[in-house]
Design a protein around this nucleic acid. Structure first.
Length: 408
DNA sequence: TCTGGGGTCCTAGGACCC
DNA sequence: TCTGGGGTCCTAGGACCC
């Protein structure tokens, strides 16, 4: 039997802000100023009715003296790394699941440390509080899913241990749609079947589960009944299977040239990230979001693996011609690089011998250097110039530098 | 809650081949 | 003319997560 911890930061972004600014402790702190809705709210703000996705003007209305700041991901990532390292003192088997969550396989650590799992969880909380000034909640269970139910059970600063024997009481109180892995579509389907709680799902006979559900739900059923299907994965994520860049713009547009300029920006940003990780894409996809949130999507293989906008954009343009409906208004474009893999030595050689790429790779080598030195948007291609002037000026102000234009 | 940005995995069904 | 069976790859899209 495995023992898994799920460690979850309490109101993580807001807690980091309060840790950095001690005079904000005890006050309503909200992050998300950059997008107009709440990303994280401190418990003081939650107590007064502010939750995730509340519009900021509502926050203002409800709590006039609330502190509202932009999310500062780089700083939170530092807190995150340090939190993971503290957990690693208890076991090397740590999976960094998201910026504020980790799974830890603690199996056998009770004997090693000579105390109960609950005591170990308590020590973890104390260490994180003392060293980082933030609180965490911990769920303990025989599978990731049950550990996750536990960490949500009591917050903030909770410790909840769920075993095969005690799981029923927790699952009975848990709505089907609140289970990790069941979203709104499945929740609706379950409710139509008369299944309303996690316990009702867990109690379904194996034979029914086997014939009526697809793989993810079958696995979920096992996990919620206490079998570990998904082990804790310690490999640190360093590469991506796909990289995507999307941006919403206002007002929505049906102007093809403008949309292409937006897509070119998406391509440039995605390619820059791929090159940063030494990755090449073998395919691309384009996603257009219409004003009413309907969307269209298409993908294609590249004839040559690439991480350079010049080669990729022509394929994107073809996809665009197929998807674009001139009478529609579009509010966002997204480009995804797919089938990513490490640029190996031989690929590099092949890549550089390929004539058009040589020029591109030279140009982009310089661009990457300039970007590293002066910021991500110091250099843009000509297509991006079709974007409204204000955007460019905004960027110039931010990086405090003339914008360089390079023809590729 | 009228909605930002970035990921992963799974599956149905068609194309194409033998 | 209506006729087999099976495998693999690809595209499109659904669903979920933070």
């Amino acid at each position: 039997m495995q023992t898994i911890f799920h460690v979850d930061g309490d109101a993580f972004f807001a807690a980091c802000e309060q840790s950095i600014h001690p005079d904000w402790r005890g006050r309503a702190v909200v992050t998300g100023a950059e997008r107009g809705i709440v990303s994280a709210a401190s418990y003081e703000a939650k107590a007064r009715g502010v939750s995730r996705a509340t519009a900021l003007w509502d926050v203002h209305r409800i709590i006039p003296n609330a502190i509202i700041v932009s999310s500062d991901y780089e700083t939170y990532s530092l807190f995150s790394k340090r939190m993971f390292n503290i957990i690693r003192r208890f076991t090397p088997e740590v999976e960094e699941y998201s910026i504020d969550e980790a799974f830890a396989d603690m199996t056998g650590q009770d004997r090693r440390h000579g105390c109960s799992y609950r005591e170990l969880a308590c020590q973890m909380q104390v260490a994180v509080m003392n060293e980082l000034g933030i609180s965490i909640s911990i769920g303990i269970g025989p599978s990731k899913v049950l550990a996750k139910v536990g960490s949500k059970w009591k917050k903030p600063s909770g410790i909840t241990e769920i075993t095969i024997e005690t799981r029923e009481q927790y699952l009975q109180a848990l709505e089907i749609g609140k289970i990790w892995g069941i979203g709104s579509a499945h929740a609706t389907r379950f409710r139509m079947m008369g299944v309303r709680t996690a316990q009702q799902f867990a109690a379904m006979p194996a034979s029914i589960v086997k014939q009526s559900f697809d793989k993810p739900l079958k696995e979920l059923w096992h996990e919620i009944n206490g079998s570990m299907i998904n082990p804790v994965s310690t490999s640190i994520k360093q590469d991506y299977k796909s990289i995507s860049k999307m941006e919403t713009f206002t007002p929505p547009s049906s102007n093809a040239a403008y949309l292409k300029a937006r897509m070119m920006r998406n391509v440039e940003h995605a390619c820059a990230k791929a090159r940063r990780y030494g990755l090449l894409a073998s395919g691309v996809s384009l996603y257009l979001r219409k004003q009413d949130f309907r969307s269209s999507y298409s993908e294609a293989k590249l004839s040559v693996d690439s991480a350079y906008p010049g080669e990729i954009f022509s394929v994107i343009e073809e996809l665009f011609e197929n998807l674009f409906e001139p009478w529609e208004l579009y509010r966002a474009t997204a480009v995804t690089l797919t089938g990513l893999h490490k640029m190996t030595g031989s690929q590099k050689a092949l890549f550089e011998n390929y004539e058009p790429s040589t020029k591109q790779s030279l140009v982009y080598k310089s661009i990457d250097m300039l970007s590293a030195k002066y910021g991500n948007h110091a250099v843009m291609t000509g297509t991006s110039l079709r974007l409204p002037v204000q955007l460019t000026q905004q960027r110039q102000r931010r990086i405090n530098l003339p914008v360089l234009h390079v023809a590729v």
